[in-house]
Simulated assay, not measured.
Amino acid sequence: MKIEYLYQPDVVRCRPSDTLAHAAHLLVRARIGALAVVDDDGTLVGILSERDLARAMTEQREPGSALASSYASRGVEVARQHEDSWTVGRRMLDAGIRHLPVVSDGQLVGMVSMRDVLAVETWA
């Protein structure tokens, strides 16, 4: 199945200057495991995951006040809408990641999780 049929189009985002406390609040409220970090132009600059927050907890004296830009993964891999879910899932497994931003024409259009891919590949 193509990624365009299974990604989540409502991407929860934060800015690089947001605190980790704010980012954690967004994750909990939306019940998700990662969010996109975007600049003022809406350009994807990274992804902030639960794992990144856990790392901050071990490295920072006051992790809630640290900035998202300090812990966001940069140079993120992305999925494209036309890609096959099996191929994307394989890339995610190989890289040890659970969330990929989905882009179309260079613009962030959604997020796909390993859970999304697993559900399609298991029930297809």
Score class of each variant (00 low, 15 high):
Asp10His: 14
Thr19Gln: 07
His99Thr: 06
His99Glu: 01
His99Asp: 04
Val120Leu: 09
Val28Tyr: 12
Leu26Cys: 12
Arg13Gly: 00
Ile3Ala: 03
Leu6His: 09
Met1Pro: 09
Pro16Lys: 09
Leu35Gly: 02
Val12Asn: 04
Ala34Glu: 00
Gly42Phe: 05
Asp94Tyr: 10
Ala36Thr: 01
Asp84Lys: 08
Gly64Tyr: 02
Val88Gln: 02
Glu77Trp: 10
Ala21Arg: 14
Thr87Gly: 06
Pro63His: 07
Ala30Thr: 10
Ala66Cys: 12
Ala36Pro: 00
Met92Ile: 03
Arg74Asn: 08
Ser85Gly: 03
Val45Thr: 15
Met111Gln: 02
Asp18Pro: 00
Cys14Trp: 00
Gly106Cys: 05
Arg91Glu: 10
Asp84Ala: 01
Thr43Trp: 05
Thr43Asp: 13
Val45Ser: 02
Gly110Tyr: 05
Ile47His: 00
Glu50Pro: 01
Asp105Glu: 15
Gly89Ala: 10
Ala30Asp: 13
His22Glu: 14
Arg55Asn: 08
Glu59Pro: 00
Leu48Asn: 06
Met1Ile: 08
Leu53Pro: 04
Lys2Cys: 01
Arg91Gly: 08
Val117Ile: 15
Ser49Trp: 03
Leu26Ile: 03
Ser65Glu: 14
Ala23Pro: 01
Gly110Ser: 07
Tyr71Asn: 11
Ala23Cys: 15
Thr19Leu: 04
Asp41Gln: 13
Val45Gly: 08
Asp40Leu: 11
Gly46Cys: 04
Ile32Lys: 06
Pro9Phe: 03
Leu53Trp: 02
Met57Trp: 05
Asp41Cys: 04
Tyr71Gly: 08
Gly46Ala: 09
Val28His: 14
Val109Tyr: 04
Ala72Val: 05
Met111Ala: 03
Gly64Val: 08
Gly64His: 05
His22Thr: 11
Ala56Thr: 05
Tyr7Lys: 01
Ala66Gln: 11
Asp84Pro: 02
Ala68Pro: 00
Val45Ile: 14
Arg55Ser: 06
Val78Pro: 00
Arg74Met: 10
Leu35Ile: 15
Leu27Ser: 07
Ala95Leu: 15
Thr122Phe: 13
Gly46Lys: 02
Val11Pro: 04
Tyr7Cys: 04
Pro9Arg: 09
Arg74Tyr: 10
Ser17Gly: 13
Leu6Ala: 11
Gly75Ile: 09
Arg13Ile: 09
Ala72Cys: 15
Ala24Glu: 10
Ala124Leu: 12
Val12Leu: 09
Ala24Gly: 07
Met92Trp: 01
Val102Tyr: 01
Gln107Cys: 08
Asp40Thr: 13
Arg90Asp: 12
Val103Gln: 12
Arg90Cys: 10
Leu27Lys: 06
Thr43His: 13
Ile32Asp: 10
Asp39Pro: 03
Ile32Leu: 09
Gly89Phe: 10
Arg91His: 06
Ala56Lys: 04
Ser65Ile: 14
Ala119Gly: 11
Val117Tyr: 01
Ser85Thr: 11
Leu20Asn: 03
Glu59Ile: 00
His99Val: 07
Pro101Leu: 09
Gly33Phe: 07
Val76Lys: 06
Asp10Arg: 15
Thr122Val: 13
His82Asn: 11
Leu27Cys: 07
Asp116Glu: 12
Met92Gln: 02
Ala68Lys: 01
Ala66His: 07
Thr87Leu: 12
Leu108Tyr: 07
Leu48Gly: 02
Asp52Met: 04
Arg91Ser: 11
Gly110Leu: 01
Glu77Val: 06
Cys14Asn: 05
Glu121Gly: 03
